[in-house]
């Protein structure tokens, strides 16, 4: 049975963190609240205090700098969806948000909330992993930065400390040109991914691949990387890139996943699709960078 809880509406990060410290585990930060409402209604969390942080200023912006793109934790999915024009990588993220929940929930749901929910099947998480993004965690002693891939510690579990709050996501912009792609298999147009994958490929001015990152979702307790697959393409030219290499990268990625079978899909299917989706996302990146596979 769902419990009753108190609602606090702090105006600053410091106040929010102080409330969290005072009330401890039964207090939850509440942003868009779309996941929290469900968890509470299904009695899946202990909840005595909701700390509604939507009144905290300054966390609802997307900043595009030379070195990095910064996305405030309170940026809604709808805002991210509408930021496509501002940067090539934001275009990719915008396309991802269009697959998430429904338009009328995207107006509420926030990027920070989505990341803190730490679903292994989340749509944004593998893209953030593939973009080498970091979580910005603000505590009483200041900020610390943690790679997204390390931020997730298990299904619905994160490395966030009791005295910390996620305040943003930072995507570094490496030198050269980077393209990213995300693909998933879903049942109907509105769904949780049965399996997903994201890749980013960075090339230098000569068209040689300098960085490849792959994030794999719904195939393990956390978002997984595929280091062997990533290495496969390093140093190769995107012009006349052998298709075989992409297929091999897919197969290597499929070798690292640890999927489970559940009501949505079997482990076998997820493994099979990792192979396909990794190849397709790499293919997308090569195409976006103006390269060709042969």
């Amino acid at each position: 049975m769902k419990s009753h809880f108190e609602v606090f509406q702090p105006a600053t990060i410091a106040q929010a963190i102080a409330l969290k410290q005072r009330h401890g585990k039964t207090a939850r930060f509440w942003a868009g609240g779309t996941d929290m409402t469900l968890l509470w209604q299904r009695s899946l969390i202990d909840l005595d205090q909701s700390i509604d942080i939507t009144g905290v200023g300054g966390l609802d912006r997307i900043k595009v700098g030379k070195q990095a793109i910064e996305i405030g934790a309170l940026v809604t999915l709808a805002q991210l969806e509408r930021a496509a024009e501002r940067h090539g990588l934001l275009k990719t993220l915008s396309d991802v948000t269009k697959l998430m929940c429904t338009p009328q929930t995207r107006t509420l749901a926030t990027v920070g909330g989505n990341i803190c929910n730490a679903s292994p099947a989340a749509d944004l998480s593998p893209v953030f992993v593939a973009l080498d993004a970091s979580a910005v965690l603000t505590g009483t002693g200041g900020d610390r930065s943690l790679k997204i891939v390390d931020f997730f510690t298990g299904p619905k579990r994160t490395a966030i400390k009791a005295s910390e709050m996620l305040t943003g996501i930072k995507i570094p912009l490496p030198s050269g040109t980077t393209a990213a792609s995300y693909r998933r298999v879903a049942r109907t147009v509105v769904d949780i991914a049965l399996v997903n994958a994201s890749s980013s490929v960075t090339v230098n001015a000569k068209g040689a691949i300098t960085r490849v990152l792959i994030g794999l979702g719904a195939v393990g307790p956390v978002i997984l990387r595929a280091p062997e697959a990533e290495k496969q393409l390093l140093g190769k030219s995107i012009n006349e890139l052998p298709r075989r290499l992409l297929e091999e990268a897919g197969a290597q990625a499929a070798a690292v996943v640890q999927p489970i079978s559940d009501v949505r899909a079997s482990a076998d299917y997820r493994r099979h699709m990792t192979k396909i989706l990794v190849r397709r996302t790499l293919d997308d990146c090569i195409a976006e960078l103006g390269g060709q596979t042969v």
């Binding site: 868009g32 779309t34 509604d52 009328q104 929930t105």
Partner: peptide
């Protein structure tokens, strides 16, 4: 803006 009022306090 359209919102799902069942998911909003």
């Amino acid at each position: 803006k359209a919102v799902t009022s069942c998911l909003m306090l």
